[in-house]
Computed example of a mutant assay.
Amino acid sequence: MPHSYYDFFAGGGMAGFGLGSDWQCLFANDIDAKKAASYRVNHGGGKELLLKDVAQVTADEIPGTADLVWASFPCQDLSLAGKGAGLAGKRSGMFKPFWQLVCDLTDEGRGPKMVAVENVYGAITSNGGRDFHTLAASFADLGYRFGAVVVDAVHFLPQSRPRFFIIGIRGDLRLPESCLQAAPSPVWHPPALVEGHNLLSAEAKERWVWWNLPVPASRESTLAELIEEDPKGVTWHSKAETAYLLSLMTDLNRKKVEAAKQLGTRKVGTVYRRTRPDADGVKRQRAEVRFDDIAGCLRTPSGGSSRQTIMVVEGRSVRSRLLSPREAMALMGLPESFILPERYNDAYKLAGDGVAVPVVRHLAQGIFEPVLKRNRLALVA
């Protein structure tokens, strides 16, 4: 019998790809019609998906009882690029109606065995740590044993994408020893998270656990091997466009390009345009390049500066173009069979808002599935 889950803020259903075929989605929810269309076409029609504002969803619209509730709630008000509204913001504030549904299900005797909430790293420190305190208190007040980890997709994919996960297990369930450790790990528990834990209430600390995850093997995939020579949805820039991009670079970044030329081999880098103050304090658009075989974090396309550019250097030749939709999906760990939205911006937004597939699989293997196995064995015993 497959494990069951609900997928809130489901987007294209990337969490489901990460959980895998041993998991069955009983209910999914999103408010974005374009994302819902992608979910349905990539999840066998997606009859389980309810296209509706989560604040308008009621518990009686949610069937059965789930082993896991997954929620990648909006990050805009919690991210470093946001305006600091935090959980009081219009978008990230959607955590509150989502959590009310978890409370309602619990009141009906349908409380999920596990709840996993995903967001940006900034969720730990936003509003001076008060938002993290609110998230922790939500789990503690419902009687969940819970803890948090920060997992960077770079362990599995050539993309720098650190994400915060807070994972709770219902209080009546047993926790496998393999999932726990006595103290924080530098791999999964950075100083900001340790400090956040130190500031929690006594009640929250009482229910806190330090999750233990296996350290993954060294990543084998590289950025260069994901880059298409003949991409669909984008075209290579003209020489003038590439020259303009180079003109936006500081001396430091131009030196990186020159160093790549000296190698005489194919070198793939990524470029983001950012607004930076110059020596006189005047803000100017700058192009910043990296050649460490890791893409920058995919973001939603709220303007040209947020779209990632590919730069390919081969000897004296320098070419550039936008990251293609298929490349963006590959950087999220989705299979080539994933059906892309037709419009570039829709595809890029879907990727930028998503959760990296192998990260979800790692959490499933390290925590979700061992917890379910431990408690099924307990029932048999």
Results as ranks from 00 to 15, higher is better:
Pro370Ala: 11
Arg307Lys: 15
Pro370Met: 00
Arg307Asn: 14
Gly315Asn: 04
Ala351Asp: 01
Ala356Lys: 11
Val371Lys: 08
Glu314Leu: 09
Gly354Cys: 06
Ala351Lys: 11
Asp346Cys: 10
Met311Arg: 02
Ala378Arg: 14
Val318Pro: 08
Gln308Phe: 06
Ala378Ile: 12
Tyr344Ala: 12
Glu342Gly: 00
Asp353Val: 02
Val380Pro: 01
Ile310Gln: 09
Leu340Asp: 06
Glu314Gln: 13
Lys349Arg: 14
Leu363Ala: 05
Arg376Gln: 03
Gly352Glu: 05
Arg361Pro: 06
Val318Gln: 04
Glu336Leu: 13
Ile310Glu: 02
Val360His: 02
Leu363Gln: 10
Leu331Met: 10
Val380Asp: 12
Tyr344Phe: 15
Ala351Thr: 08
Pro358Asp: 11
Ile339Leu: 02
Pro335Trp: 09
Arg326Gly: 14
Leu377Ala: 13
Ala378Asn: 04
Lys373Ala: 07
Val380Lys: 08
Pro341Gln: 01
His362Asp: 08
Arg307Pro: 00
Glu327Ser: 12
Met329Leu: 14
Gly352Ala: 04
Gln365Met: 03
Arg376Leu: 10
Leu334Ile: 01
Gly366Arg: 02
Leu372Ala: 08
Leu379His: 12
Arg319Leu: 12
Ile367Val: 11
Met311Gln: 05
Asn345Gly: 14
Val371Asn: 05
Pro325Asp: 01
Gly352Tyr: 07
Pro370Glu: 03
Glu314Asp: 13
Val357Ser: 01
Val380Leu: 15
Pro341Cys: 09
Gln308Ala: 14
Ser317Gly: 07
Gly315Val: 13
Met329Ala: 15
Leu377Thr: 00
Val360Phe: 07
Met311Thr: 12
Ala381Lys: 05
Pro370Gln: 01
Lys373Glu: 00
Leu372Cys: 13
Leu334Asp: 05
Glu342Trp: 00
Val380Gly: 10
Pro358Glu: 09
Asp346Leu: 07
Asp346Ser: 15
Ser320His: 00
Ala347Leu: 13
Leu379Pro: 03
Pro358Arg: 09
Ile367Pro: 00
Leu377Gly: 15
Ser324Asn: 10
Arg316His: 08
Val359Asn: 05
Asn345Ala: 15
Leu331Cys: 12
Arg321His: 14
Ser337Leu: 07
Glu327Met: 12
Val357Asn: 01
Leu377Asn: 11
